[in-house]
Structure formats: structure tokens, C-alpha cells
């Protein structure tokens, strides 16, 4: 197998959510002495990007995305063994996530949590119907880079505005970025309450989180 063929095989293994094949490709890359970072960045990562696109278009589904992500994680672990410790993959950032108190809708938030994990974030998912104080406490405890809140009702979206104030009062607002989403939330609302980002869907939430985490 040429290097190019191996990179393509890595991409295909992730898209097919085939962990066994992904690990086999990773082991072959190591045995051929290829640059592990190149295999990750040009082989496995494009596969995950394609998985994200397919999910966004509704032709690949959540369980398959998770299996694809597990295939990638297993393969990357094999490749990382041959890397010096300082070059090993770090987390993309740390996120505190939850649905605002009074709101029991957690499907969209769950998808965002899943995709953020797939893209390498450390996710502290507080669940649904989460008291605003719990968000503040978790941000203080973990030193998270981001806090994401979901609201699907006009009666709970006001909690996102209150959280901005509470984070300021706790002296945490300067060290954490805020993201808002949910069926009734818009960019206009995000701007109005002073949130750092708004996402229309889960895929956009990941893109915005990556953008914010990279500063």
C-alpha cells in the first residue's frame, strides 16, 4: 500500500465506522514508519470531517457518528504511541453544557454534547432542567473554556440572559465564552444578551466552539 493509499484507507475506515479496519491501517502506518501526525491529519481527520458533513445532510446518523468517532479514537491511540508525549493530541477545550432550568428538552443538547466529544472537547454535560447556579458552579470548578446553554421555550430563554449576569457577578465571565442555542433562540437574541456565539444546529455549534476555543 502506498502512503496515499494508506491515507485514503484511513479516511474510508472512519467514514465506514470500521474500528477494526481503522486500527489495522494505523498499525500498518506505524510499521511503515510513516509520520503519525500526517496520518492523523491527512488520513483520519478528513474522515471525521466527512462524517460531520454526512450527519449535517441527514445521510449519516448519530449512532454511526459515535461509532466512527470510536474508530478514529482507537486508531489515533495506536499512532500516538509512537509520538513523543508533547506531540500527543490535546483536548480541543472544555465545555459546560446543559438545558436551562424549567426546560426538559434535551435531544438537541445531547446531539451537541455528542458531536463536541467527537471533535475532542471535554464535555461536562449537566443535563436538562439545570439551575443557573449549577452552570456557574461547574464553570468555577472546572475552569471550562466554554459554557453552552439550550432553551426551547420563550419562558426559559430568559435564563440565558440571567446566566450572563450571574457569570459576571461571580467574576467568571472574562474567562469563559458563552454559547446559546435552542428552537426559539436567534443570533439577534445572542447579540442582545451579550453571548459570544449562537448556533443554528449541532454542526454549527461544533464549528463555533472550535472557533471560540482557539481564541
Amino acid at each position: 500500500m502506498t502512503e496515499q493509499e494508506l491515507l485514503s484507507a484511513a479516511t474510508e475506515a472512519v467514514v465506514a465506522a470500521n474500528e477494526e479496519k481503522a486500527c489495522e491501517v494505523a498499525r500498518e502506518a506505524v510499521s511503515l514508519g510513516l509520520d503519525p501526525l500526517r496520518v492523523i491529519n491527512e488520513g483520519f481527520t478528513p474522515g471525521m470531517r466527512e462524517v460531520g458533513d454526512l450527519f449535517e445532510r441527514g445521510t449519516m446518523f448519530l449512532p454511526e457518528v459515535i461509532l466512527a468517532s470510536e474508530a478514529m479514537v482507537a486508531a489515533v491511540a495506536i499512532l500516538e504511541e509512537s509520538l513523543p508525549a508533547d506531540q500527543r493530541e490535546k483536548t480541543a477545550g472544555s465545555v459546560v453544557l446543559g438545558t436551562i432550568e424549567g426546560d426538559v428538552h434535551d435531544i438537541g443538547k445531547g446531539i451537541v454534547a455528542t458531536l463536541l466529544r467527537v471533535y475532542g472537547f471535554e464535555v461536562h454535560d449537566l443535563g436538562r432542567d439545570v439551575p443557573l447556579t449549577s452552570f456557574v458552579e461547574k464553570v468555577a470548578e472546572t475552569g471550562a473554556d466554554l459554557v453552552g446553554t439550550s432553551a426551547l421555550m420563550t419562558t426559559t430563554m430568559v435564563g440565558q440572559k440571567a446566566l450572563e449576569k450571574m457569570l459576571k457577578e461571580a467574576g467568571l465571565r472574562d474567562q469563559v465564552k458563552t454559547m446559546v442555542g435552542g428552537a426559539v433562540v436567534t443570533q439577534y437574541w445572542a447579540d442582545k444578551i451579550g453571548a459570544d456565539a449562537y448556533a443554528e444546529n449541532a454542526q454549527e455549534a461544533v464549528a463555533k466552539a472550535l472557533e471560540l476555543a482557539q481564541g
Partner: peptide
């Protein structure tokens, strides 16, 4: 809850 199980990678259970 699949919203808890899926992010935890528990696909079969979800």
C-alpha cells in the same frame, strides 16, 4: 435516556 447514553458511547443500550 439516549441523550445520555449516546454521548457516553453506549450505542447498543441507546
Amino acid at each position: 435516556n439516549p441523550s445520555d447514553l449516546l454521548p457516553a458511547g453506549k450505542v447498543k443500550e441507546a
